[in-house]
Amino acid sequence: MKYLVMIQGTQADYEAMSGKGGKDSPAWGEKDLQAMYAFMGALNNDLAESGEMVDGQGLGEPAQARTVGLGADGRPVVTDGPYGETKELLAGYWVLDCPSLERVTEIAERILQCPQPEGAPVYPVVIRQIMDGGGDVC
């Protein structure tokens, strides 16, 4: 079965990773970034070697995102960012092909072990099964 495994973050987290910390996200140093990249690289390599990795990507900061919706008049409305009622948003993902929900849960637990600076926020890892209905989404 295929699963979408998602990690969350905020604009403040992206800024902290570039060295501009704030009250909710301490600044990351070069060693913090290197540790995180090494951890994620090892995880991705392990998932590729096991044949479970289909795809995985980190996403750009929310400040560079746009949302396109429909206005009351049915015309497109473009707004900055993916912001809704929450500041947390999708920061990265993996598409994994795992034999069971238990196995993908083990991987999510490993993701939570990613090193980060003391005091940095810890977000849950979200797992969603990808439905294989064979039909179009729209």
Rank of each mutant, 00 (worst) to 15 (best):
T105V: 14
Q11I: 05
Y14F: 15
A91D: 01
M36H: 15
N44I: 05
Q113P: 01
L89D: 00
E106T: 13
L101H: 11
G58Q: 03
G69R: 01
G81N: 02
G92H: 00
A12G: 07
R110E: 12
N44F: 05
C114E: 11
E109C: 09
K23L: 07
P124V: 08
L96Q: 01
D46C: 12
A63S: 10
P115R: 09
M131Y: 09
A72K: 06
G84E: 01
G92P: 02
G134L: 12
A72Q: 10
V77S: 06
R128Q: 08
V137R: 15
S100L: 07
L59C: 03
V68M: 10
R110W: 03
R128T: 09
Q64M: 11
K87Q: 07
D73T: 08
T10W: 00
L70N: 03
L4A: 14
E106H: 04
F39E: 08
C114A: 14
F39W: 08
T86E: 13
Q129V: 10
G19D: 02
C114N: 10
V5D: 03
V122Q: 13
T10N: 00
W94Q: 09
T86Q: 09
D136K: 11
C138Q: 05
Y3D: 04
A63H: 11
A91R: 01
Q57N: 11
A12F: 00
L33C: 08
Q8N: 07
M6F: 03
Q116V: 02
R110N: 06
Q8K: 13
G119Q: 09
G58R: 06
D32S: 11
A38S: 15
Q11M: 06
G19A: 10
D55G: 07
G134A: 06
G133C: 05
G84I: 00
A38F: 14
D73K: 02
E15N: 14
G58N: 03
K2G: 04
I107V: 15
A72C: 03
L70F: 04
L59R: 01
C138M: 10
G81D: 05
S18Y: 01
S18H: 08
K87P: 00
L33F: 08
A38W: 13
R66K: 15
D132C: 09
V5G: 01
Q129G: 05
D32M: 05
Y123G: 05
G56L: 06
L70M: 04
R75H: 10
D73M: 05
D97Y: 03
A35F: 04
Q64V: 12
G9C: 03
I130V: 11
V78Y: 07
A65E: 04
P121L: 04
Y123A: 12
G60M: 06
D32W: 02
D80L: 04
Q129S: 07
P117L: 13
A72P: 00
Y93W: 09
G60F: 08
Q8Y: 07
G21K: 03
